[in-house]
Amino acid sequence: MDGYDFTFSGATLRALPQGALYWPCEGVLVVSDLHLGKSERIARRGGSLLPPYETIETLRRLDTVIEGCGPKTVICLGDSFDDLAAGQDLPREICEWLLRLQAGRRWVWIEGNHDPGPLALGGSHLAELTIATLIFRHIAVPSATHEVSGHYHPKARLTLRGRHIARPCFVVDENRLILPAFGAYTGGMDCTDPVIAGLFRPKALALLTGPQVRALPLAKLG
């Protein structure tokens, strides 16, 4: 499978073009911020009736990635559901689809700020998880190292020969790795925003998703 291989905290990881992370030697696939059930939550709270297809679309993409790398473990890095009620209200076909994806592998739901409690879906529910040298949690802890997280939906923006380009991206330095949001209805925060950039050292890289993953120095963006 295409992707951008790099080493982080001694582990060889692969940033996939769709915005998922794969760890070949452990057989671990990581996706963050799926926000399943987002359109339903917006409608429930009296907002717009957005096209109710984002959960299907997100699972379709996840299905493709799982199909491509056949992981032993899948980690959903938090904010997997737009809120707990959205998680509880998933249509039966969606629950069955999730069960199918979970079959034959370990499945971990890391808690996020949108989905802080356990849900009656298969898989284990954890606040954080350590595998080998790496720790997986939803929101980065500034003092942490060896940390893989999500939450911020980082996005890179740049202008090349007069053309504006914006792509969801991974951001990585020697201490931490932040994943882009994998859900279909997710926006992004500029990765040069102090909220994100402040967590990283000067030599951090942004790995841009797209047809091919492209690495750019974070310091050269914005």
């Binding site: 080493t7 090349l160 890289l205 047809p211 091919q212 492209r214 690495a215 750019l216 120095p217």
Partner: peptide
């Protein structure tokens, strides 16, 4: 994508980085 590939080559070399290679 071609623009990004060019930027990748130029900016990474410029920054003295060739990625976090394997």
């Amino acid at each position: 994508d071609r623009l990004l590939a060019e930027a990748e080559a130029a900016l990474m070399a410029d920054a003295g980085l060739d990625g976090l290679p394997v």
